[in-house]
């Protein structure tokens, strides 16, 4: 293993090519992430087809207002992450770190609301599978709605945590001066991941909270 001082890797031939490869690799990874969520969306589609009324009722047990706040938080955090890429392209490292931190703060706010919601479901008994204790809705279908709810939001929350870690690492890199106007592949590529996690939520939000 060679100790690398330069982030440019020789086997790519040119810097432009390394940029291209990193972008393509990340987009392919994002594509595979979409397919990771696919099962849950398909399960949602099929079970909603089987139990349309129960899904409407189940959705009323969720906090649509707070979910809208969450959506706004995520959309705004996405703006800040996009700005981070914008600033690092101009080489403004401090500003980059700052907007990334703001974006992370909003992500944490999102997870805070999520945690509060989970706690409410816990007290209510609206839990997946064999823990389901909600009496207003039948177990057949009702427990499936909440299983899908927890799986979709849970998988999304896990992705949020990973993405937060990624942004934290980018903040560290920006502060320590690793990224410049020439070399900032990790910021561009890490930002893509954050946006994708945001995009998943854009679909989860109406599917779970606004069923009618």
């Amino acid at each position: 293993m060679s100790t690398e001082t330069s982030p440019w890797e020789e086997h790519f031939g040119s810097r432009e090519n390394q940029n291209k490869a990193a972008q393509l690799g990340m987009w392919i990874f994002l594509g595979s992430e979409v397919l990771l969520f696919t099962n849950l969306f398909v399960g949602y589609g099929v079970y909603r087809y089987y139990y349309p009324d129960i899904f409407v009722e189940g959705s009323k047990h969720l906090e649509a207002g707070w979910a809208t706040v969450q959506t706004l938080l995520l959309v705004t955090s996405s703006l800040f992450v996009a700005l981070a890429v914008h600033y690092i392209r101009q080489g403004r490292q401090f500003l980059t770190a700052l907007v990334l931190l703001v974006g992370m703060g909003m992500g944490l706010g999102f997870l805070g609301i999520k945690g509060w919601e989970y706690w409410k479901h816990w007290t209510e008994g609206a839990l997946p599978g064999e823990y389901y204790r909600l009496e207003e809705l039948p177990v057949r279908g009702g427990s499936l709605f909440f299983t899908l709810y927890f799986l979709l939001t849970g998988l999304h929350a896990v992705h949020m945590l990973v993405a937060l870690g990624l942004l934290g690492w980018l903040v560290w890199g920006a502060v320590s001066g690793k990224y410049t106007a020439e070399y900032h592949i990790p910021v561009e590529v890490g930002g893509l991941y954050w946006h994708l996690v945001d995009v998943f939520w854009l679909f989860i939000y109406p599917l779970l909270y606004l069923v009618e």
């Binding site: 959309v75 703006l79 992450v81 946006h195 994708l196 995009v199 854009l202 679909f203 939000y205």
Partner: peptide
């Protein structure tokens, strides 16, 4: 949601 996704992908994700 699709329109929003297209906006995020095109402009935020460059």
């Amino acid at each position: 949601a699709v329109v929003k996704t297209v906006l995020v992908a095109m402009f935020f994700m460059h």
